[in-house]
């Protein structure tokens, strides 16, 4: 608890009034000094007795850069209070202050500026007496974070990735790949009788190897101090992974921040975005690169290597042709 600026001014003036009154005997200064003293005493008592306000922070859901979400608080406080929230770089605004009126639900807009797992807070609540003479601050730390995913861009020119799509298939426990006409030499065991009956000719099920189902996407980025390379890598990997998952392909991810085992569907996409949101720049292991079907490298410019062919990521999303 400490004096506010206004409180200091009033305290000095009250002191001056007492001194002047005693020295020069202007008794009417009592009328000015005494109530001020009472106001101070009241202020100190009121602020001292205030309980710690209860604050519940409701973190907005994860989103992509450029989106705006609402940070919300449920606050239970009494008296005159003011709430100040601080946000790290990567979110805007960096701080927000609002007065509180009783039990309140406070909201404000947060703009997701940059990818990352941003730890929010600390939150301070400043309680003053009704006249604003004395103030007391309560500080709340937490370990909650706002997750901003990398920017996902639609891949318009998927030509380079087309081969992957054809090659991979719907994964399954039995992991069969596709149906094709019987070719001499195919084991009879693989004949798909149901379809043969409908089709009229012999049809064979071609099984793929288990791990051929999954496309491995690997990302690397050169550390450059600003984190731009890491962002570029994350954006590229996220876009590619989303594209593949949307088509229905099983995807596996390896980035400096960790690995994600193969999987499909929405759940896999969430997990990938989560991983990519947090990944720092750096390199991955050599065997990871060896297994990679898609290798993304960000070092100022972002290049995507697919089965030996290099293509600029900008082209993938820009819609221009591939130069092999």
């Amino acid at each position: 608890m400490r004096l506010t600026r206004r409180g200091t001014l009033v305290a000095l003036a009250t002191l001056g009034a007492f001194v002047a009154g005693a020295t020069f005997g202007a008794r009417a200064l009592n009328a000015v000094a005494a109530p001020s003293l009472v106001a101070f005493a009241y202020a100190v008592v009121v602020v001292w007795r205030t309980d710690q306000p209860r604050v519940e922070r409701l973190i907005p859901p994860a989103g992509h850069p450029g989106e705006t979400r609402r940070m919300q608080f449920n606050v239970a406080t009494s008296g005159t209070a003011e709430l100040t929230d601080r946000l790290p770089a990567g979110l805007r605004p960096r701080s927000h202050t609002t007065p509180l009126l009783g039990d309140d639900h406070v909201e404000y807009d947060v703009e997701y500026a940059r990818r990352g797992a941003h730890a929010v807070g600390p939150l301070t609540i400043r309680i003053t007496d009704p006249l604003g003479l004395v103030a007391r601050r309560f500080r709340y730390e937490n370990d909650k974070e706002v997750l901003v995913y990398p920017a996902v861009t639609a891949i318009t020119d998927g030509g380079a990735l087309a081969g992957l799509v054809d090659q991979s298939g719907m994964p399954d426990r039995q992991a069969f790949d596709r149906l094709r006409e019987y070719a001499p030499g195919d084991p009879l065991r693989d004949v798909n009788w149901k379809t043969t009956a409908k089709y009229g000719n012999l049809v064979v099920t071609e099984y793929a190897a288990e791990d051929q189902g999954a496309v491995t996407v690997v990302g690397e980025a050169t550390p450059d101090g600003t984190g731009d390379n890491a962002d570029a890598m994350a954006d590229a990997v996220a876009s590619i992974v989303t594209y593949l998952l949307d088509v229905g392909i099983e995807v596996e991810v390896a980035v400096p921040g960790g690995e994600l085992p193969a999987g499909v569907g929405d759940r896999q996409r969430q997990a990938a975005l989560d991983l990519l949101a947090r990944t720092p720049p750096g390199q991955v292991g050599t065997d990871a690169i060896a297994n990679a079907d898609v290798h993304v490298v960000a070092e100022g410019e972002t290049t995507v290597e697919v089965r030996g062919a290099d293509v600029r990521y900008a082209d993938l999303v820009g819609g221009r042709g591939v130069t092999a």
Partner: peptide, 8 residues
């Protein structure tokens, strides 16, 4: 059982 390898 095999949540991740099958479609939700």
């Amino acid at each position: 059982v095999e949540r991740d390898r099958t479609y939700e």
